[in-house]
Design a protein around this nucleic acid. Structure first.
Lengths: 248, 248
DNA sequence: AAGTGGTCTAGACCACTTG
DNA sequence: AAGTGGTCTAGACCACTTG
């Protein structure tokens, strides 16, 4: 197995750091030093340094040099999957019941998230997502409540969300987006219990998400809040899973 | 504001995709075509393509060309922060009470996570993390139960975990690591209620994490499971927050 | 056979930080 | 003033996919 030259240098740097030979904050050889040491061009040495910087192992600054990054295991990441994909991956069927799809006056708490004044008219959808197994047994695993800025998706109320999820529809409309989200453990309200067929003692995983559409300008980034969604999951039937480098 | 040439090309490609002019799966101009179109060298055009590929906007394959990536908003990410950092960021004090620090015979459920046979001896720690505000008011926000492979950290039982978190200690010992984790909503057991001073009706956010130490070999990656941790958080006093591109 | 992306070179000029 | 990283060029050779 022949590694490209830049990969050989990456390996070398990686080993020095992983083994603890180079501690966080330590100076790393410069592009020119590595180029000479490995008999490659500066561009090749540079590539090794750049790629390790991109994954967070090194920090670089013009004029000052390259260092081993501080505090590698700062934060781990949890992946939030699309509910329909997740179900499909388990080889099960996804079914969506549209419980509500209308225009509402935005409650104050939601208005705050959307950057609107309370009682502004917004589109609202409430959808129950069910997982149907091979025997036809259906289990409710997510209740989705979504508030959408009207101007963003004028045709929202005309969609058939039992066929395409609101998420898929909105993605198609504003392809690239940015999201803030957070997770809490809550006891379900009587209404949520009813919609998800839960007992009063089952806690829920509540995922809140605010999405913005992003447009990269020449100078600055323009953001436009698109929607706010609250996703409830039965605590005993759903997990948010993840996998990523770093974190103990 | 003068953008570097590769950034101008990135902007152009980004706009084509963001505006929907180029749909997922569509062919993107080749390196040579872009080089000519923007009057730059192939390496510069290549850089624009490479960087957009790294963030997942494009897919490339040797011989076949470059395409707009399918299913951009596939999964969002949630960041899991280190509890001590999080508290410090809010300008509060972190306090850790070591409730247990000893050697135990590994319960079957934990053994399965660690890849051990049940009843193997492992190190165990149970720590209560508290947030102390400006008025000296302390609130328990995390109960950490951790099972550590003995060979990985022989000195584990001698550490003072009220001063340095187990996470920080283990990071120092095996600098680079990889983790699987998942989040659930659960009702706390009587013991957990007691340790976190919770009422019986408060649900908990339960974060489970299995960490492996990783060594990149020339040919394959070697993994070594390091520890398994369960972190309980009061549902009404704690949120897992995140922010990242993609996802509606 | 022609075109694509992947690797690599030996130069260049620049902005920046450091002694 | 010397060294660093950031950008860029005009070439080269290669493995690979496609008509």
């Amino acid at each position: 197995m022949v590694l490209p030259r830049f990969a050989v240098i990456k390996d070398y740097l990686y080993q020095q750091i992983e083994s603890g030979q180079w501690l966080p904050g330590a100076a790393v050889p410069s592009e020119n030093q590595l180029a000479e040491q490995f008999s490659v061009s500066r561009m090749t040495a540079r590539r090794a340094l750049t790629e390790l910087t991109q994954v967070g192992l090194l920090t670089r600054s013009q004029g000052a040099g390259t260092q081993v990054a501080e505090q590698l295991p700062t934060g781990a990441l949890l992946e939030i999957r699309n509910i329909a994909d997740e179900i499909a991956e388990r080889g099960h069927q996804h079914r969506a019941d549209v419980l509500a799809l209308n225009e509402v006056l935005c409650p104050a708490t939601i208005a705050q998230q959307l950057g609107l004044v309370p009682d502004t008219a917004v589109f609202f959808s409430r959808i129950r997502h069910l997982e149907v197994d091979r025997h036809g047994q259906a289990t409710a695993i997510q209740l989705e409540e979504r508030y959408v800025i009207k101007a963003i998706a004028p045709g929202y109320l005309e969609q058939d969300f039992s066929r395409q999820t609101p998420s898929a529809y909105l993605s198609a409309i504003s392809p690239l987006s940015e999201a803030d989200h957070w997770v809490e453990a809550v006891m379900p309200s009587a209404a949520v219990q009813d919609w998800l067929s839960l007992s009063a003692e089952t806690p829920c995983l509540k995922l809140s998400r605010r999405t913005s559409s992003v447009r990269l300008g020449k100078v600055k980034k323009q953001q436009q809040i698109v929607n706010f969604a609250i996703l409830y999951h039965p605590g005993d039937k759903y997990r948010l899973g993840g996998h990523l480098v770093t974190g103990v």
